[in-house]
Amino acid sequence: MTRIDGPRLPATGGPATALVVFLHGYGADGNDLIDIGAAWQPHLPGVAFVSPHAPEPCAMSPMGRQWFPLTLRDDTERWRGVVHARPALDAFLDAERDRLGVTDDRIVLVGFSQGTMMALHVGLRRPALAAIVGYSGLLAGPEHLDEATARPKVTLIHGDQDQVLPVQFTFAAASALGAAGIPAEFHVSKGIGHGIDQRGLVLGLETVAGALGIALPRR
């Protein structure tokens, strides 16, 4: 099993009482999302942030990383991929939890694209996490949701102009999660492609803060 690591931001205001883990998309690396942590950090005292690099070099982007090979041919490929990548991510989450001395219910997973696939797969099968935020992604293997052991808060955010993973994937994920008794909210970002806009970042921050019991200033 490949060990993974990536950039970190320490908690402000004292020892960490919670952890946000960013899971990047196909062909990127941990540096791609850690800046979101820097933007959220002033609003989330006591929260540490980490953005691990996926375990494999990306076949289509030699400078990037992948959680698993991805051609988007079918869901069988994606299901096999998340299952294969899960042990490395689980081991990383265990190590970060123990290093910081936090509990699982103080951990939030935030994924983008392929990272959302990993966040949903792993996050629903661990001891109950605080929340999962998924941007521009999909749920791999919805027929396997009977394996889910946790019911964290799930928020899915997707651009309606996404040509890589169309927004219908989020509609399908929310429907499958709801049918399995896992309530999921979803938000559609108008005019946004395969990316995250400012409104999406605010919604993600609100989800994280709410799940961790942190009050945000009223806007």
Rank of each mutant, 00 (worst) to 15 (best):
I157Q: 07
R106S: 11
R218D: 15
V82F: 08
E77H: 05
D162P: 06
D162A: 06
V188G: 03
Q163I: 06
T170C: 12
P87N: 08
G25F: 01
G123E: 06
A130G: 10
H121I: 02
L23V: 11
L129N: 07
I157R: 10
C58T: 03
G159D: 10
A11Q: 07
D29Y: 01
D29C: 05
A48R: 02
G123A: 11
V110R: 03
L89A: 07
A130C: 08
V83A: 14
I132W: 00
H187G: 02
G30A: 10
G200L: 14
H158P: 12
P42E: 04
S61D: 03
L201I: 08
V208N: 07
A54E: 09
V133H: 09
D5E: 15
H121Q: 11
T207E: 14
P42R: 03
S51A: 15
L9G: 14
R126M: 12
T2S: 14
V108A: 04
Q114N: 05
L124Y: 11
G134N: 09
E147H: 10
T71N: 10
Q168L: 02
Q161L: 12
V133M: 12
T116Q: 11
A131W: 08
L70G: 13
P183E: 04
L33R: 06
V82W: 08
P166Y: 00
